[in-house]
């Protein structure tokens, strides 16, 4: 069963495992960057002003119900094959968790802290950037990492419309009735998901203030 995965022939060339891994990682990271650029400002703005919260929640739920396969196919039918449809489908998938995490994170900042920030003379932009967002980071990361897991897993589907990534092994294996190849694809996706999550966990540790770690764990860093 592991034979396919460990065959050196599958580890080289433009259709080899390293290339597919990088493609998959590329889809994932660019998707997350685009989604974060859209979702974090939206979630932060609504969380900060407290206005339109129901829009965020409603929009998140509606987007969550959207089948990624359908979005991918629709955009391919409209715009043709390529990476663009993949990004549209994956970004729409990644926006809800990041937006919901950001919104919830900002709303969860202790109102006393926010009151103090205004009371010491911070302008609204500073209240948001220097106090609310740094304190919301744990929940923002929560949403972001959830999105990352989903994107890594779902980017597999990109191969259905001929795009690259690890999904190629799953769909090619399916077409060839090559079970070893399919399994290798699935295992590699799961592995990549775990690695990506570990990477973001590390980033989280570096960027979130030690003051926000659960009490008791602050001492041993």
């Amino acid at each position: 069963m592991g034979g396919w995965l460990f065959d050196p022939a599958h580890w080289s060339g433009t259709t080899g495992i390293p290339v597919r891994l990088l493609e998959h990682l590329g889809y994932t990271l660019l998707t997350l960057v685009i989604a974060a650029l859209i979702a974090i400002p939206l979630g932060a703005f609504v969380g900060h002003t407290g206005k339109g919260g129901f829009v965020i929640v409603g929009l998140s739920n509606a987007l969550r119900a959207l089948p990624t396969t359908a979005v991918l196919i629709l955009v391919v039918l409209w715009a043709g094959l390529g990476d663009f449809p993949v990004y549209v489908a994956l970004v729409l998938l990644a926006i809800p968790p990041i937006m919901a995490g950001t919104y919830a994170g900002i709303r969860a900042v202790d109102p006393v802290t926010v009151d103090a920030a205004r009371g010491v003379g911070m302008r609204e932009s500073s209240v948001l950037l220097q106090v609310e967002i740094p304190n919301a980071l744990p929940l923002i990361y929560g949403g972001f990492r959830g999105a990352a897991l989903q994107v890594v897993a779902t980017a597999t589907i990109a191969a259905y419309t001929g795009a690259g990534g690890l999904g190629r092994f799953v769909f090619d294996g399916l077409a060839l009735q090559d079970f070893g190849q399919m399994l290798a694809g699935a295992v590699l996706v799961a592995l990549l998901a775990v690695l990506v999550d570990l990477g973001f966990a590390g980033l989280q540790r570096l960027t979130v203030s030690p003051g926000l770690r659960p009490v008791g764990s602050g001492g041993k860093s």
Binding site: L149, T154, G167, L174, L183, V189, A190, A193, V194
Partner: peptide, 17 residues
Amino acid sequence: NVLFTIPSIALIVITPV
């Protein structure tokens, strides 16, 4: 958490096996 990282298409394909 690990179960979540397995792509649904892969799980659907592997299940019959």
